[in-house]
């Protein structure tokens, strides 16, 4: 007996996508709606507070976190196209509000309903597969352009949210996508938010190694579930004029050829 497929999700768009990569948000909405999920976008949302929390400024982080709780307290499901922001809301809000019982209660309640984007897709597809074989999976790649995609598992998604297989399964099941192995995939790309500008000499070394691994993989596209990492990786690819594109997994799933 499987759970019924999620029918409704409230989108938290993340500040990076909102401000710099709005197209990613469009792909997220399209991918969900195509699967029959009703998407709403609670008003007044901005940032989850993670940049502040990671820098140690918890008082300021709380101001933003409370706004997220206010906007999403009543939602059925919250969907976040970022492992990093997702981890902040699911895991770290409860540390942030450890000494404030009422806010802690709200944070704990919300944490049960937070889905990173691919987690939600996996659940929707899982329910759909249980009902009937998916059309997507039955489609043949023959004749279509197949994009060689390397998947970079972002650290918070992997280690705080515990999402390891899901995104790869989604990519492998998608038509028009061929997943290639990324060497040392689980090594951090060196973004780390403020780390990238506080310790650029270390960050740049980590980045160079990640880009090298992507080149070795032979991928034409590198994808991830976090625009922070992809801004970082894509920024280096762009600077070096390399023939690789950095795209959010929602974009790849929405339109592999792009």
């Amino acid at each position: 007996m499987t759970e019924p497929a999620p029918r409704r999700a409230s989108l938290f768009i993340t500040c990076i996508i909102d401000q710099l990569y709005p197209d990613v948000g469009v792909s997220v909405v399209r991918a969900l709606r195509r699967r029959g999920v009703m998407v709403d976008f609670p008003a007044g949302q901005t940032c989850c507070g993670q940049p502040l929390y990671n820098a140690g400024f918890t008082a300021e982080a709380k101001r933003l976190a409370v706004r997220v709780l206010d906007a999403f307290d009543d939602c059925e499901r919250m969907v976040v196209p970022s492992g990093s922001c997702g981890a902040m809301i699911r895991v770290f809000y409860q540390d942030l509000f450890a000494d404030e019982p009422e806010l802690l209660r709200r944070a704990a309640a919300l944490s049960e309903r937070v889905y990173e984007f691919t987690e939600l897709l996996t659940e929707v597809d899982g329910a759909a597969d249980a009902a009937a074989p998916s059309d997507d999976a039955a489609q043949s790649d023959a004749g279509a352009d197949v994009a060689a995609v390397a998947y970079h598992p972002s650290c918070h998604l992997l280690r705080e949210m515990g999402v390891r297989r899901g995104p790869l399964d989604l990519l492998e099941a998608a038509s028009g996508v061929s997943v290639v192995d990324l060497p040392d995939a689980e090594q951090c790309c060196g973004f780390g938010g403020a780390f990238a500008v506080k310790y650029p000499h270390i960050s740049e070394q980590m980045l160079a190694d990640k880009v090298e691994a992507i080149l070795q993989s032979g991928a034409a596209t590198v994808t991830a579930c976090d625009m922070g990492c992809l801004m970082h990786i894509g920024g280096a690819i762009s600077r070096r004029g390399l023939p690789v594109r950095a795209r959010h997994i929602a974009q790849v799933l929405d339109d592999p050829a792009g």
Binding site: N54, C155, H156, L158, R159, E160, E186, Q187, C188, G190, F191, G192, G193, A194, F195, K198, Y199, I202, S203, M206
Partner: peptide
Amino acid sequence: NASTLCGACR
């Protein structure tokens, strides 16, 4: 501060 908080250590 000199960490990306990647969590590999944990």
